[in-house]
Amino acid sequence: MGTTTTETVHSRTLRLTEPHVVLEQDVHRSVPEGYVVVEPTLASICHADLRYFGGTRKPEVLAKKLPMALLHEGIGTIVGGESTRLSHRQKVVIVPYLAGYLLEEQGQAHSCPACRGEISDNYCTHSRFLGSGTDGIAQSRLVIPEPCAIPIPESIPDEIAVLTELCSVSYRALRPVNDLLGQAKIAVFGDGPVGYLTAAMLHHAFGVGPDRLTVFGAIREKLDQFTFARTEMVQQYDFSSGEPVDIVVECTGGKFSESAINQGITLLAAGGHLIAMGVSEDLVPINTRDVLEKGLTLYGSSRSSITDFEGVLQVMQQKACQDTLRPLIPDSYTVVAKAEDFVGAMESALAHREWKKTYLDFQW
């Protein structure tokens, strides 16, 4: 990417300055060559946003990252920049993971091991991530590298497209075991949105049916939404005598990570894989004895990259996939026109923690 500035845009940026406090700040952003300007139109709130807003991140983390505009799940329209691929007012999904080779002058070949293809491209040491250390989607003009704005196919409604980022994280976590998914028995731990979308991607993107897919959760009303998988209540299931599985995906996070990971280790067959996706602020003790005795493979995954978004958008064009995703869509959206609206939406999401996502309809 070059450094020549093609224009400057004015952005109304809703920055979290301290927990529960959001101020609108006027920011003038330069538009380097190879970048585009996106006007965010629809976004959803992630638990990561709530951890910043509610102040549950560690004080040293908050001190380092604030002030900062939140949000990394969203869509928008192209309103600036010079692009031969994207047209003015075209609808795009926003990729929040900005790989180092897109940001630095030396280009991909001379950046880092991830950019050179030596390790997975979502582990770039020079990357930036919207709403985590750099201003996110809560602003009227977002300036990002052109490849991070992906056109939304006409067959995908906006309310489905806004779920692309969250789906892409699950999609990315499953790619390393793609060659096993044709026959493997799989257990997903977590009855929240991450667990739901991970199970949805297993079903629609990788063809895993309910005969091989089991979801473990703690709330029956949530588990009843998983109509495309078998479901089990963790409180009632005997993991020590349950049918072994080949792959476990942990989607709980927080204080439930410990029990989910260790129940998954108990359930796994020898040589199995455990994929950790849930985020916890604290260290999580795990049963290493069984990990060693069974020869298990453990890895973590929390971010996705451009190719994952492209793969998910292909899957989302299926009507069956759209129907599966609709239960997560809220009955109404929260209009955000000023900082006070944004604070109200965040406080409500923090207080209620509903199963459905919270959508923000930006009116700049």
Rank of each mutant, 00 (worst) to 15 (best):
A345K: 07
V336C: 12
Q314R: 14
D290M: 15
S257H: 13
R289I: 07
M277R: 11
A270P: 01
L267A: 12
D323N: 11
D323S: 12
K319V: 13
A351D: 03
F342D: 03
V291F: 06
V343N: 03
A337H: 12
D282K: 14
E310T: 03
K356I: 00
G344I: 02
Q322S: 08
E354I: 02
V335T: 15
I261N: 06
E258H: 11
K294W: 04
T307L: 14
A337S: 15
Y299S: 06
D308T: 03
M346H: 01
L296K: 00
V343F: 06
C321F: 01
I329W: 06
E281K: 13
E347T: 08
R289S: 11
I306K: 03
I286N: 06
K338R: 15
G254V: 08
T252F: 01
V284L: 03
G295A: 08
Q317N: 04
G264D: 10
I306C: 04
G344A: 10
Y299H: 09
Q314P: 03
P330R: 00
L283P: 03
G271K: 04
V249E: 04
A260V: 09
I265R: 01
G300R: 03
I286S: 06
E340T: 14
W355N: 09
I306W: 06
T324M: 08
